[in-house]
């Protein structure tokens, strides 16, 4: 009986770490944790890829737009031509031009007030653009912070479950303990696998967004200066 038990244990033991098997053998709570972490990981990578592509596209369009912007004779015509595309700089310009038209449509022009309103309009447009860009980055930050804890929760639960099973079987041999703990630790592994890229990507992307924001601000200041000069005439 001893031998058959030993043999069964030896044969039943997984010969390698198979993530699907680990998932299927785990407790339901651990499975939920693993599933959630898996989805989080998918979402993180979606953001990483999507943000990288989007940031590249936007950066290229903005540079192109700005080059054309400073050489354009007729801003309204240029704006009409370019404005339909998804360009943050164009939207900042649009906000400024809208404010300009409203402020200069009256008989008397309050130059100081107009300058302040233009600045405020452009600032708000710039922050809105950067907020939109960074909208998804907070998910990266959340996953990077929380995923290890969630994984740890799954592990603790799995280990608890394993020890409970040991108690129920009255057998403390390693063959009984090991698989459960292995499954439980798998939860932490997934948590870390989701968190590490998320943290790295978050730091990198917020740096990029900050850079883009300051670029937009520089453009807005320059445009504001142009408009102010225009007001003086």
């Amino acid at each position: 009986m001893m031998l058959t038990m030993l043999a069964a244990g030896a044969i039943g033991a997984p010969t390698r770490l198979n993530p699907v098997e680990l998932f299927l053998h785990a407790d339901i709570v651990v499975q939920v944790v693993m599933g959630a972490l898996g989805l989080a990981s998918v979402w993180v990578w979606m953001i990483v890829i999507g943000f990288t592509v989007r940031m590249g596209l936007i950066g290229r369009r903005c540079r192109k737009y700005e080059e054309g912007f400073w050489t354009a004779r007729d801003l309204d015509a240029y704006q009409k031509e370019q404005g339909t595309r998804d360009i943050p700089t164009a939207r900042v310009v649009a906000a400024a031009l809208a404010e300009w038209r409203r402020s200069t449509s009256g008989k008397t022009i309050d130059r100081d007030g107009t300058r302040q309103r233009l600045a405020a309009a452009m600032d708000s447009a710039v922050t809105e653009e950067t907020d939109r860009l960074a909208a998804r980055l907070n998910f990266l930050a959340t996953v990077g912070t929380v995923a290890p804890f969630v994984g740890l929760f799954g592990t603790v639960w799995g280990v608890m479950d394993s020890f409970f099973r040991i108690g129920a079987q009255q057998n403390s041999s390693l063959a009984v303990v090991a698989p459960g703990i292995s499954e439980a630790l798998f939860a932490t592994a997934i948590g870390l696998a989701a968190a590490i890229p998320a943290v790295v990507a978050y730091n990198r992307f917020s740096h990029r967004v900050n850079g883009f924001e300051s670029g937009l601000f520089r453009f807005a200041d320059r445009f504001h200066a142009t408009l102010s000069r225009e007001l003086e005439q």
């Binding site: 998918v42 990578w45 979606m46 990483v48 890829i49 999507g50 596209l57």
Partner: peptide, 13 residues
């Protein structure tokens, strides 16, 4: 871009 990213991420996982 995010739609593309989602597909790629699912495929990669």
């Amino acid at each position: 871009e995010y739609a593309i990213g989602l597909i790629v991420a699912i495929a990669a996982h």
